[in-house]
Amino acid sequence: MAAEHDTTLEVELKMLDAGIEPPSYAHPGDAGADLRARVDVALAPGERALVPTGVSLALPFGYVALIHPRSGLATKHGLTVVNAPGTVDAGYRGEIAVTLLNTDANTPIELKRGDRIAQMVIQKVETARFVPVDELPDSVRGAGGFGSTGGFAPAAAAHRG
Rank of each mutant, 00 (worst) to 15 (best):
G145I: 06
V88I: 13
R36W: 00
A97Q: 11
A143F: 08
A97T: 11
E110Y: 05
D89N: 10
P132C: 12
A158N: 13
N106T: 15
P22S: 10
L43A: 08
G46N: 03
K14L: 13
L111D: 05
D134Q: 06
D89I: 03
P85W: 03
K76I: 04
T8F: 08
V133N: 08
V39H: 02
T127G: 13
Y25C: 05
T107M: 09
R116G: 04
A105P: 12
M1R: 10
D17G: 01
T80N: 13
A26P: 02
L73A: 08
I67P: 00
L101A: 10
E47T: 09
A155H: 12
A44F: 05
Q119D: 08
R93L: 05
Y92L: 07
L101I: 06
T53I: 04
S139T: 13
A128V: 11
Y25H: 12
A155K: 15
G62L: 07
E10V: 14
V11C: 05
A158R: 15
S148N: 03
A3Q: 14
G54C: 05
D138N: 06
G32L: 09
T99S: 08
E4L: 14
N83P: 00
S24F: 15
A37F: 01
R38T: 03
F152V: 09
R129Q: 15
G91R: 11
R38F: 09
Y25S: 00
V125S: 01
T75R: 07
I67F: 07
D104C: 04
H68V: 11
H5Y: 14
I20Q: 01
P154K: 15
V51T: 06
S24K: 14
A153M: 12
L79T: 00
P137A: 10
P154T: 15
R70L: 04
F61Y: 14
L111Q: 01
D138E: 15
G145V: 10
A156F: 11
A44Q: 15
G72E: 00
L16W: 01
L57S: 02
G62V: 05
D89K: 09
G151S: 09
H77P: 00
T149M: 12
A26D: 11
R113C: 07
R38E: 06
A58L: 12
G86E: 03
T99W: 04
P108V: 04
I96H: 02
A158I: 09
G72W: 07
V11F: 06
F146V: 01
H77T: 03
E95H: 06
G32W: 00
G161D: 13
D34L: 11
L66D: 02
L9F: 10
L43G: 01
N83L: 07
E110I: 07
A42L: 11
N106R: 11
G62K: 01
R141E: 04
R113F: 09
N83M: 08
M120Y: 00
L100H: 04
I122E: 04
K124A: 12
A153N: 14
L50E: 13
A58H: 12
V41F: 05
A37N: 05
A155S: 09
I117M: 02
A143P: 08
D40L: 03
A157N: 09
G62D: 04
G144H: 11
L73I: 02
T127V: 10
G19N: 12
T8G: 03
N106Q: 14
T107Q: 15
Q119H: 10
